[in-house]
Amino acid sequence: MKQIKTEARWKETFKVAWPLCLSYTPIGLACGILLHAAGFNTLLTGLVSLVIFSGGAQFLIAQMLTVNAPILTIVLMLFFLELRYALLGSSLSKYLQGESRSSIFTFALSLNDENYAVNYLKFATDKHWTPNDARQVEHWSLLFWTVSNIVGSLIGSVLSINLTVVDFALTALFIYMIVMQIKSRLSLLICIFSGALAAVCMIITKSTLGLVASTLIASFTGFLIEELLVKKRPASALLQDIGSRKGGPIIEEIEKKESDIL
């Protein structure tokens, strides 16, 4: 009987994580350089990368320190900026049922926007994807991010580099992650609404707190609209896949259940 050879699980999770790790490298280098310019030594840069593990938060820390912002202001800004992880974590909780508290704790510590998107997609499409696999993806991305930050700090200690391109690189990464997540017409509509709302909220608040407010409002609005359409109008065009004339994932699931009953 012919034996089927299977790869080690860490190799499979690395294959899933490596595009994410690759995209982290240039941004991580830039973040390390910027943190060094803000007064962080290499050891502190590595520690911040491990504890916070958020490009947006770390760039925010560096920028606010360069303008001598009070520590309390920085902490409050970070709290509201990272509050979105409560929403991200809650959407993954159904896949972590039965896990120990320590496992959930380590999973939560290494969660960020990008590995959340990768793991959510894998959980939704791969029935063999486990919480341990998801945790490995998070740890791979955390490893590459931390090492890139440390190397960036070392580069910043010997070179003077123009960092004006950093904001564009970070924005491009998040735009890519958004595009990867847009599938239905409703998600595209909410994405456009969220962008417009973020601009309005930031003009009103004159700070990044507007981003937190717009994220919460747009997420809640999208949830309400989706729930209403699923219950009242499951055949709505908004629930269909982009470019599809047939029913979207929700409609197909309903049709499948009906066929199973028959």
Rank of each mutant, 00 (worst) to 15 (best):
D260G: 04
I203S: 15
L50E: 11
F107Y: 13
S194C: 14
L50T: 08
I161T: 00
F53W: 02
Q240E: 08
G210F: 07
S259M: 10
A196Q: 06
Q136A: 06
T215D: 08
E252F: 00
A57K: 02
K256S: 06
F220T: 03
V166I: 11
G89R: 01
N115Q: 05
D167E: 12
H128P: 12
L20C: 07
L121E: 10
D133V: 00
K256L: 12
L111I: 15
N68G: 05
S103D: 13
G89C: 08
H128K: 15
A30E: 04
K122Q: 14
D113H: 03
T130A: 12
E255N: 02
T42K: 05
Q3N: 10
S110K: 02
Q181E: 08
Y95T: 06
F53T: 01
Y120P: 04
V75R: 01
N149F: 05
L238A: 08
A237C: 06
I250F: 14
K206S: 13
R135M: 14
V165P: 01
L22C: 11
C191Y: 10
L216R: 00
K257F: 07
G210C: 12
R245A: 07
I192Q: 06
L44F: 11
V151P: 09
I52S: 08
T73E: 06
F80G: 03
P249G: 11
N115S: 09
L109Y: 09
T130F: 10
K11I: 14
E258W: 00
T146G: 04
S219M: 10
L88H: 04
E255D: 12
N112C: 14
F80D: 09
H139L: 14
T106P: 02
L154P: 04
G195E: 09
L216D: 07
D167L: 03
M202W: 03
A213Q: 07
V158P: 05
K122W: 04
C21A: 11
T66W: 00
L211E: 09
F123R: 03
G156I: 00
A218T: 06
Y116W: 13
F40K: 01
C31W: 03
W145G: 12
F123Y: 15
V151N: 09
Q63C: 02
G28L: 04
A134S: 15
A108P: 05
T13S: 10
D113N: 07
V200K: 02
A30M: 15
T146M: 02
F220L: 15
G98S: 09
V51T: 06
G248W: 01
K257R: 14
F105I: 07
F168V: 13
